[in-house]
């Protein structure tokens, strides 16, 4: 997994609440058997018209945001399905961090498995960053995972929380499966005991 340490870049503003996974990557793109290549279809139905032409108004089609690395989003971002295609599509487009007041649970977890950082901040701080994001290329937002801070374009520093284990994995690009397999004897022991306690499982 790719490491996440620091990230500085343009942030795209998406103030809409309840942006769901069907919006992030519509189902017709879930038929792939690969992880890569989904960036061009990120937000497909908001981004392109029926003929497949770009809708100029849509934020990621605007010149300032074509290389956005961060999204500032409304409440409850990523609600809906468990499709990991949502973070894959965001990452493939180049978005490595998303900042909102809240995230849907499965989406939030899926981000970390892909070296991406979802950040929860209180409303007033998200508002400040949303204003920054609206300034396009004139405002860069900086994220530092080690110190758990987001710095707005004019130097306001906001602290965010992250689970220590998740942070450790992200900073070092650690693969969960490898880590868990180090505990294989513990799993073996549990399985043995459980098969006696609940043999019908």
């Amino acid at each position: 997994m790719e490491k996440f340490t620091t990230l500085t870049g343009v942030a795209a503003p998406m103030p809409l609440v309840n942006i769901d996974t069907d919006m992030i990557i519509p189902k017709q793109f879930l038929k792939t058997i690969q992880r890569s290549g989904l960036g061009k279809n990120l937000f497909d139905e908001m981004r392109y018209d029926d003929q497949g032409r770009e809708i100029p108004d849509f934020v990621l089609n605007q010149p300032a945001y074509r290389n956005a690395k961060i999204l500032i989003a409304g409440d409850n971002f990523g609600c809906g399905s468990s499709r990991e295609h949502a973070p894959w599509a965001l990452a493939d487009f180049g978005i490595r961090a998303i900042i909102s007041t809240s995230f849907a649970d499965i989406f939030y977890n899926n981000c970390f498995k892909n070296g991406m950082l979802p950040i929860v901040l209180p409303q007033d701080q998200v508002d400040v960053l949303m204003e920054d994001a609206r300034k396009g290329e004139n405002a860069r937002i900086a994220i530092d995972l080690e110190s758990q801070t987001v710095t707005s374009a004019d130097g306001h520093e906001f602290h965010f929380d992250i689970h220590p284990f998740t942070k450790h994995c992200l900073l070092n690009g650690l693969d969960d499966i490898g880590l868990t397999l180090e505990k294989v004897s513990t799993i073996d022991a549990f399985e043995k005991q459980a098969s006696q306690a609940r043999p019908w499982v």
Partner: peptide, 30 residues
């Protein structure tokens, strides 16, 4: 790997959706 896994909670089972990376994790480690 499906959010509506919650359905199975009707039996008093702890059931929930996971992403594809987690599917791989469960396949490999249970």
């Amino acid at each position: 790997g499906d959010s509506h896994t919650a359905t199975h909670g009707a039996f008093g089972a702890l059931a929930h959706g996971i992403g594809t990376s987690e599917v791989e994790h469960v396949l490999a480690t249970q």
